[in-house]
Amino acid sequence: MRWGDMDAYGHINNVQIVRMLEEARIGAFGPPRGAGLPGVQPQVSLFNDVPDGIMALVVDHKIRYVRTLEYRNVPAVVQVWIGAVKGASFDIHYLVQDPVTGEDCVKASSHLAFVDEATGRVQRLTPEQKERMAPYRH
C-alpha cells in the first residue's frame, strides 16, 4: 500500500484496489509479453509465454468490498488462484486481507481471454495453457 492509495476517509481507494489486483495477478502469473522483465519471478509463466501477436486481456472484473481496507505502512495480503477454465477464457480470483488484522477486505475475480491482436478474435486455450493452470485451480 502506498500513501497515495488512500481516499479522503483514510481507506484504500477502490481504483487502487484494481491496481493491487493487477499487481497480484502479474506477480503470480507473469507480465504480458513485451512488458519487460518481471520484478518478481511468477509462480507460473502464463501471460508472457504466448505466441507473438496474442494478448491476454481482461474481459471483466467483479469486486466485492467486504470491509474497508485501512491504509497500513505494510503490503496487503493478496491470495490469488485460478477458478473456472473454459474453452477460450478463465477466471482469476483474489482475496485481499488486512495485513495487520488478517480480516478479509476484498473478494474479487477477473475474467480473462487470449486474443489475436491482428484479428481481435478470442483464441481457444491450448492444452499446455490448461495444464499450467491446473495446480493453481481451486
Rank of each mutant, 00 (worst) to 15 (best):
M55R: 06
Q123I: 02
W81D: 14
N73V: 01
V66E: 12
S110P: 04
G53D: 08
E128S: 13
R33C: 08
C105G: 00
V78P: 01
L21N: 03
L57C: 14
F90I: 02
P127K: 10
H61P: 06
V66W: 02
N13I: 01
G36N: 06
P38H: 09
F47G: 07
A8T: 06
L37T: 10
L125Y: 07
T68L: 02
I92H: 04
G53P: 01
Y94G: 10
F29N: 10
H138I: 08
Y65A: 00
L69R: 00
K86R: 15
R33L: 13
P42N: 04
R25T: 05
T101S: 15
M20H: 15
V44M: 15
V85I: 15
R33H: 07
R67D: 10
V40F: 08
S109E: 11
Q79T: 08
M133A: 06
T101C: 05
H61L: 14
A118C: 01
Q129G: 01
R25S: 07
V85W: 07
D52K: 10
H61Y: 12
V77G: 00
L112K: 06
A108N: 03
Q123R: 13
T101K: 03
D52E: 15
Q97P: 00
H61D: 13
K62F: 11
V58S: 09
V74I: 10
A8I: 10
V115M: 14
I12P: 00
K86T: 02
Q129F: 06
C105L: 00
A8R: 14
P135V: 07
V59Q: 12
M20T: 05
C105A: 08
V66M: 07
D116R: 11
L95C: 04
A134N: 06
R132E: 03
I17S: 03
W3D: 08
P38K: 07
T68P: 11
V77D: 08
P31H: 07
L46P: 05
I63D: 08
Q97F: 00
P38A: 10
P75R: 09
Y9S: 05
L112M: 13
R64G: 09
Q129N: 04
N48T: 02
V122R: 11
W81C: 10
Q97I: 00
R2Y: 15
A113N: 04
N13A: 10
L46T: 10
Y9K: 02
G34Y: 12
V40M: 10
R121Y: 02
A35D: 14
Q123G: 01
W81G: 12
V15H: 09
H111P: 01
W81I: 05
M1L: 12
G83T: 12
R137F: 03
A28G: 04
P51C: 06
V122M: 14
T101Q: 03
V85N: 03
P42D: 04
Q16S: 10
V40H: 11
Q129H: 06
E128Y: 02
N73R: 12
Q79M: 05
I92A: 05
D91M: 13
A28R: 07
V50N: 04
D116E: 14
R121N: 13
L69C: 01
S89L: 07
L95S: 14
Y65Q: 00
E70D: 10
E128R: 13
V15D: 14
P42A: 08
P99M: 05
V74L: 12
R19I: 05
F90W: 15
A35Y: 09
I26G: 01
V106A: 02
A134L: 14
